[in-house]
């Protein structure tokens, strides 16, 4: 009987302390953090690099700008309001439609009126959701209509694809599926389902919820494995390109698949979590350690995607 930590070490699982000390601190320079923490900057830089992002409808920086809200929102019946410096998916309000009475319908079917939207925006502006509690700005943007390929395996909310890009090489991927339990959020520790993706083919394999392996989506009952992510190579290339817009060596890239507009980059994360290991049933350590030893990293994103696939192939687990 081996001790649990020896077992974890053998499986190459990276813990929080190791992630911070060995990957985030040496590879992520603090001065680049604002590039990913501020979603407006991320969006602008992504557009420069021709990475598709949800269209920006409005950017509210000052309280009195909220007065123009009715005219700003008039053309849109669906949109998302979120803090520019938010973290962990906090402070996001998704409006899925308007009612005849002039109310807005949230994605969780609650009705809100304009005043409540204004209050939410002023909460965002006062820094309630920002990382350091500093004043913030609010973003109003396109609401992603998710691709039908996930229709059977998600409950409300938008499923998203999370990739770990190390030194510009996409190495790990999972898809996060909202559940009833997670209240439509794609956050694993709130009860969303994480499903690992085979890097080579873009097919889903393992599913996990609350650290326990599962085979079917808890709300819809459809199998989680074997879903082909459309435009997989395009997704990988986009993720690899994100390294160019924010030169962070250990980067989390969140993407969504839009029904009409294809894959879009939602946000970047300088401190991506470790749940991706659970979803993939594989530890990060040997793969990241191997990627550390690589000499020069090619400048072309396509090449880096290729390297990523090769590394994952090299470390692929024996078929069970």
């Amino acid at each position: 009987m081996k001790l649990p930590w020896t077992r974890l070490r053998e499986l190459g699982i990276v813990g929080m302390n190791q992630r911070n000390a060995e990957f985030i601190m040496p590879y992520n320079e603090r001065r680049y953090y604002p590039l990913v923490d501020n979603k407006i900057i991320t969006k602008q830089r992504a557009i420069e690099k021709h990475i598709p992002v949800p269209e920006l409808y409005g950017h509210i920086e000052l309280e009195h700008q909220a007065a123009h809200l009715p005219s700003l929102l008039a053309p849109y019946s669906e949109f998302v309001i979120k803090p520019a410096n938010g973290s962990g998916g906090n402070g996001i309000m998704v409006i899925a439609g308007k009612t005849a009475s002039g109310h807005f319908r949230r994605s969780n079917d609650n009705l809100v009126n304009l005043d409540e939207i204004k209050h939410h925006i002023s909460n965002i502006l006062s820094g309630m959701y920002s990382l350091g509690g500093e004043t913030d700005s609010a973003i109003i943007e396109y609401r992603v209509k998710f691709d039908p390929c996930f229709e059977n395996v998600s409950f409300k909310g938008v499923p998203d694809v999370r990739l770990i890009v190390f030194r510009g090489i996409p190495l790990f991927a999972m898809i996060r599926l909202p559940t009833r339990h997670s209240d439509g959020r794609a956050n694993l520790h709130q009860g969303a389902v994480g499903v690992g993706i085979d890097m080579g083919s873009g097919r889903t394999n393992y599913g996990v919820m609350h650290s326990r392996p599962i085979k079917e989506h808890p709300d819809t009952g459809f199998p989680l494995a074997g879903i082909q992510i459309p435009e997989w190579d395009r997704i990988l290339e986009m993720a690899a390109t994100c390294y160019e817009l924010a030169p962070l060596g250990y980067l989390g890239v969140d993407l969504v698949l839009d029904r009409d507009r294809g894959p879009m980059m939602l946000e970047l994360n300088a401190r991506p979590g470790l749940a991706i290991q659970i979803a993939n049933g594989q530890g990060l350590e040997p793969i990241l350690k191997y990627a550390q030893t690589l000499g020069t990293i090619p400048a072309s994103a396509k090449r880096r995607v290729q390297i990523g696939k090769e590394i994952r192939h090299k470390f692929s687990r024996e078929p069970a």
Binding site: P4, R7, L8, I13, G15, M16, Q18, S211, G281
Partner: peptide
């Protein structure tokens, strides 16, 4: 210290069980 945190043993228990 870059080792595991005690509660991470619990968090990653599923992986050990699978393996």
């Amino acid at each position: 210290y870059t080792g595991y945190r005690l509660l991470e043993l619990w968090r990653f228990r599923g992986l050990i069980r699978e393996a």
